[in-house]
């Protein structure tokens, strides 16, 4: 039986009585769209506006408040408002731009080499059984070696120059690319293999049209992890025998107890990480635009 108008009016009044009981003293909106009284909404609700920034700004506020009231001594942690001034000083007097450029050059060159190496190795071992037999074992062994213990080995083999630094960062970068791309290549959906066979695709067409695009999400996952690794490796490697770069500034600041400079450098590293992640996400959205047609 379709609900009639009086029924609706009755239900509406009953609803108002119930809500009034539940929320005494609170005014109900006078009109609401006709709908059945709903149960608890348990699914995720839309995010609050600026949800990503709220927590961060709150922490900054706590830091500033603690510094201002003297709860946090400047010797423990420099107050946040020193950052712009110190930054300006470093930029105009200490040639911060060149140091940032030097660090970026090292990081990007090593990242490029590491990503290329990880990708090529993953393709060789993911697409051929000979490659798998030759490559996958050593890489798995490499995976279980903590990256940091290779630093002295690299120094004794390659010295303390840029060759060693690039090699070490690339070593930290290639692993996540290799592991995730290789896993994605191996996980190729058996249904698509069957389809390719039924269509009589050549091996090359199969790889190009089915295997590689199917592994692309895995590659991007590896790439994002690799970028994070590259910044981490940069921080550590740069401080070895540094004459320029952010690591050099960090060394200097530590030696001379310039806490405000340390904070500025931490902020810079944070910005580099955030910007690179933002760029990679944008690239991934473009390359994997088909994925948005699946989920939502």
């Amino acid at each position: 039986m379709p609900p009639t108008a009086p029924d609706n009016a009755l239900a509406e009044r009953a609803h108002q009585r119930r809500t009034a009981r539940r929320y005494p003293g609170r005014r109900r909106p006078t009109s609401r769209p006709p709908q059945a009284r709903h149960g608890l909404r348990l699914g995720p609700k839309p995010r609050l506006p600026f949800a990503g920034a709220v927590g961060t700004l709150l922490l900054l506020g706590v830091w500033a408040l603690a510094s201002a009231t003297g709860t946090l001594s400047p010797r423990t942690l420099a107050p946040p408002w020193t950052v712009p001034g110190t930054f300006w000083h470093l930029w105009t007097r200490e040639g911060l731009a060149q140091h940032v450029a030097a660090s970026l050059r090292l990081a990007l060159a090593s990242l490029a080499i590491g990503v290329a190496a990880g990708l090529v190795l993953a393709l060789l071992s993911g697409l051929s059984r000979v490659g798998d037999a030759l490559i996958d074992g050593p890489v798995q062994v490499n995976r279980s070696i903590p990256w940091y213990v290779l630093v002295p080995v690299a120094i004794s083999a390659l010295g303390i120059g840029d060759t060693m630094k690039t090699t070490m960062i690339a070593l930290g970068v290639y692993l996540p690319v290799y592991l995730n791309t290789h896993a994605a290549l191996r996980r190729i959906d058996a249904r698509y293999v069957e389809l390719a066979e039924s269509l009589g695709l050549s091996r090359w067409t199969f790889v190009r049209a089915v295997v590689l695009p199917g592994a692309l999400p895995g590659f991007f996952l590896g790439l994002r992890l690799a970028t994070t690794s590259s910044w981490l490796a940069l921080v550590i490697i740069e401080q070895i025998n540094a004459t320029r770069g952010l690591g050099y500034l960090m060394n200097q600041a530590q030696s001379y107890g310039q806490d405000d400079v340390v904070i500025v450098l931490v902020v810079l590293y944070t910005l580099l990480g955030l910007i690179s992640d933002f760029l990679l996400r944008a690239l991934e959205r473009r390359a994997l635009s088909w994925q948005r047609s699946l989920g939502s």
């Binding site: 249904r191 069957e194 695709l201 050549s202 067409t205």
Partner: peptide, 24 residues
């Protein structure tokens, strides 16, 4: 000259419809 239609359409999600039809 054989062709197969599976229970699931089995279209490659990363190729547009036309490219799926002419695949290979």
């Amino acid at each position: 000259r054989r062709a197969v239609v599976f229970q699931d359409a089995r279209l490659l999600p990363w190729k547009r419809v036309a490219a799926n039809v002419t695949l290979g």
